[in-house]
Design a protein around this nucleic acid. Sequence first.
DNA 1: AGACGTTACATGCAGGCGCATGAAATGCGC
DNA 2: GCGCATTTCATGCGCCTGCATGTAACGTCT
Lengths: 126, 126
Amino acid sequence: MAVAPERELVNQWRDLATCYNKTAAALDRELQEQHGMGLSEFEALDRLVESGEEKVRMHQLASDMYLSQSALSRTVARLERSGLVERAICYDDRRSVFVRLTETGSVRHGQARDTHRHVLADHLDR
Amino acid sequence: MAVAPERELVNQWRDLATCYNKTAAALDRELQEQHGMGLSEFEALDRLVESGEEKVRMHQLASDMYLSQSALSRTVARLERSGLVERAICYDDRRSVFVRLTETGSVRHGQARDTHRHVLADHLDR
DNA sequence: AGACGTTACATGCAGGCGCATGAAATGCGC
DNA sequence: GCGCATTTCATGCGCCTGCATGTAACGTCT
């Protein structure tokens, strides 16, 4: 009688893992094929747009993402290389780096957003 | 009125991603530190034990895991290198490979299992 | 001002993953 | 039995990740 909750816990974990991995894989595939960007890139863009701010510090961006600091640094580097984002010096605190959405970044995000939401609707049931 | 469900969907996805990544990271860290094995290794062992069978085909093992076929192949290779598992030829179908738990594999799984369940209890609420 | 601990990013490195491919065994149609 | 598509697993390759570390800027204490 004390073993049932444990099985329940494991099943819950497996469902979580399966659902996450399937959804993440689908998102990454669709975003890559249709918009030439990976999942982390899109998620970073999405946070950036959503913040409402014109430019956001790396650290702040990292804070509400699951990515590590180093992974975010490289993600932003990829976005910059693609021209979707620009880095700018923060004069208040010269250690920090501002990340700013470019014009094309805004457009590309808008397009990718539809794909993103659509895949989510397909894989997450309410 | 038609935008609220969309936000809800995105929030659901973010919660899922955050929960999964935090849990997976904790599992991997604890299993690595305390038992010298990664998360995929443990999950594979767990499926193996749970099957009840003495030996299981690779393909069957892969079927109820989120891992790709190539990733599973390497995971089993690592387990074999650590002596927790053995590969055996399947004489019915010589393309297939049986995976069999070793004595030490069984012991190590039993130990790691406690860590695994404990971490799950910490990170998943019912 | 000078020294020291802290914070914010970038980067070398090792390791895991998925995709595409390779190699071997199987099954199917003729 | 022969050829050809299919299945099953292994592996080369490129990419991404986290950890540990390096570098520069900041803050504090004296």
